[in-house]
């Protein structure tokens, strides 16, 4: 039997009066690529902090490669990208990557770590002179330079431009293909859909779903109807329809329903102005919105 890379057992975390995480039990096996999703304040960062030993659970237990996460032997097997962490601005990029490499038993060559982050041209720059997206890529270089078995990425693509993000996701996918364990939290659902084979949805400190992206999407049986309308009154014409959600962005209207045929019939009967009409299966984002909304209306 292989040992899980990460194991949370009835882990709870309380900050003063706030119950950030409540009785979470989960195991992440070596080689898994897991995305943790949830609204702001749901407990994603708290979960990661417990896994990394940055915080102690109020009750329950957390193991990292079978060890206490604060054990340096466990820490030498992981690489992390954290939200809001800082690095010394007065070191050159190459210097700080070299420095971090020296913490690990069998690191990657410096040039390779820098290349993975796509920062070859910036190797001699001072860290303080990097842009926001470059900073984020530097954190990737620091996370991978120790050649870790597991990567923990907390909102890793925040601040990256489109090209940087694409490249970043490719690198993570390549690492996953090499059998590395990847745990990431993200707001971008397409990232989760693209990278992860398992999605853990956290809402208000509890795990409310834990399965593959396909299964999570299937949990929302409904269909998505999207159209463009010129009529400002279109929204008021939707009353009484069996809809699970209505989103209006400019002149684009998105409806989610379990009865697409009935809704379509009624829309035509009411003479709602519709162009660029599309009917499709719900995507992960809608599944996610539906799930967390359902939970929070209790």
């Amino acid at each position: 039997m292989t040992q899980p890379a990460v194991e949370l057992s009835h882990a709870s975390k309380r900050y003063g009066d706030v119950q950030a995480l409540h009785d979470v039990t989960l195991a992440i096996e070596p080689g898994e690529v897991v995305a943790m999703l949830g609204p702001n304040g749901a407990g994603k960062t708290t979960s990661i902090s417990l896994m990394l030993g940055l915080r102690n659970p109020t009750s329950g237990s957390v193991r990292l490669f079978g060890l206490n996460p604060r054990d340096l032997r466990a820490r030498s097997r992981i690489g992390v990208m954290l939200q809001e962490s800082g690095v010394p601005g007065m070191l050159r990029l190459r210097e700080i990557v070299d420095l971090f490499r020296s913490y690990y038993p069998s690191p990657l060559p410096t040039a390779e770590a820098i290349a993975m982050a796509g920062l070859e041209e910036k190797a001699q720059s001072l860290v303080k002179d990097l842009s926001g997206g470059q900073h984020q890529r530097l954190y990737l270089a620091l996370a991978v330079c120790g050649n870790p078995d597991a990567l923990f990425l907390d909102e890793p693509t925040v601040g990256m431009d489109v090209e940087g993000r694409r490249r970043f996701l490719e690198e993570i996918a390549a690492l996953a293909a090499k059998g590395r364990t990847v745990v990431l939290t993200t707001h971008y659902l397409e990232e989760a859909d693209q990278l992860a084979r398992r999605i853990i949805v956290i809402d208000r400190g509890q795990v409310i779903a834990d399965s593959s992206p396909a299964e999570i999407k299937a949990r929302v049986a409904g269909k998505r109807i999207t159209f463009t309308t010129q009529s400002p009154a279109a929204e008021s014409q939707l009353g009484g329809l069996p809809l699970k959600s209505i989103q209006v962005e400019g002149d684009r209207v998105r409806l989610l329903t379990n009865d697409p045929e009935g809704v379509m019939r009624e829309l035509f009967r009411r003479g709602v102005d519709m162009r660029d009409l599309e009917v499709a299966g719900a995507d992960l984002e809608e599944a996610f919105v539906a799930m967390t909304r359902h939970e929070s209306t209790v």
Partner: peptide, 17 residues
């Protein structure tokens, strides 16, 4: 300053004693 910039957070998650 290093504490203000949360440099200790990243250091804390490395195996640096």
């Amino acid at each position: 300053n290093e504490r203000g910039q949360k440099q200790d957070l990243l250091m804390k998650s490395t195996p640096l004693p």
